[in-house]
Design a protein around this nucleic acid. Sequence first.
DNA 1: TATCGATTACGTTAAATTTACTGAATTACC
DNA 2: GGTAATTCAGTAAATTTAACGTAATCGATA
Lengths: 225, 225
Amino acid sequence: MPSETVRITVDTLAFAVAQGSLEVLLVKRKYEPFKSYWALPGGFVLDTDFSLEDAATRELYEETNVSNVYLEQLYTFGDKGRDPRGRVVTVAYLALLRQEGLELRASTDASGVAWWPLSDLPSLAFDHEQIVSYAYQRLKYKIEYSPAAFKLLPQKFTLRDLQTVYEAILRKPVDNRNFRKKFLSSGVLQELDETSQEGSYRPARLYCFSEQDFEKLPDRPVFVF
Amino acid sequence: MPSETVRITVDTLAFAVAQGSLEVLLVKRKYEPFKSYWALPGGFVLDTDFSLEDAATRELYEETNVSNVYLEQLYTFGDKGRDPRGRVVTVAYLALLRQEGLELRASTDASGVAWWPLSDLPSLAFDHEQIVSYAYQRLKYKIEYSPAAFKLLPQKFTLRDLQTVYEAILRKPVDNRNFRKKFLSSGVLQELDETSQEGSYRPARLYCFSEQDFEKLPDRPVFVF
DNA sequence: TATCGATTACGTTAAATTTACTGAATTACC
DNA sequence: GGTAATTCAGTAAATTTAACGTAATCGATA
């Protein structure tokens, strides 16, 4: 009665913002199916994985050497025929991180790992293009009502850094002054005593994100631009 | 390499509003595990199910005789130990429907089907209580930015009917006049030439929902009360 | 047939928020 | 000491929200 053999994988779509552009982390497949295609890092859930998120964390680490990142479940894909090897149900995860300090390293069953700009992706294995667009949609909404954007920034950042993240994700410029006003009046930013000298102009104040103050906000979109 | 045997089920949490109260559809289990506990309708994904949503639709029909309802994927639960029979990954679905015209009928492996008020549920099998609270959370947000509430109403309805749905889900009274104003000015309601006589007072105008006009709205919360 | 209770339906106003701006302050560089 | 570039402070009109008052319409009642 209980169905044929169904196998479960977890795939992770990792986002980061680099030089004002939104990028995703991909691995190049060394073997069939979809040999030499780029794909999301991921793989089969093992007996030793307590949770699906644990599995996603482990696979991300094994396939890219990336660890310690924010993860959340995205969507589960299970249509017949999405994997030529048989029925495979994939639980997709969304990861948000910074590129600095990473040492990308492909596993032995991959021939490469790299960041790709979302606006210029290669064609992907399986139905991974669908996962990418689903994840991007989610991210766009998420930065409006959650502290998601801060997962893409270092602890200390300037308002310009924060705005760059929003503009990269929204793909449109936002009004400098209204952006600052909305964030400063929201109370989620803690002003630090440090500044950041970027160029031959006025240095920008550094801030850090206050999780506690964020909790006080209503849980509906507050960072809408 | 590809893990132990993992089995996949789809469980559906069906919501409806009856007499101003939000209710969920449950089935009573006839066999172990969790014999005689109430649980969400659902079961194993079969080879014949093309998609996971197809599987959810089929299981809902087999276990409760309910068909033709709105379904959307909710979340996937896969922690070890959530099912005593072994590793079971459950893809949970959210269903929205009306109770009128249904003929609930339990399958042979269940000893009952019934609507339960969300505010007064029995203790549930597996981790189904977690699924219920996740679904309720989702529904609460969903009626703010999506036409979800209309899935719980007949084609023709009064503004009072609509308000009752919102109040049942939000669990709080809403200002009558502001509620009407917001919906009427949103443009998603088409005024009909009919009225509904409910009691010994002024009859209420009937409206229907316009999907097209809804599409024109910004995709952020517009029905917030 | 006039009044009453209940509910639908329409408006009004003050407060809060959003949007589109003006312009000053600070830095490195020449 | 001026210039370019960017950070940062603020203002004012337009829009939206929140909290109300009140008229219109029905069946029931007397």
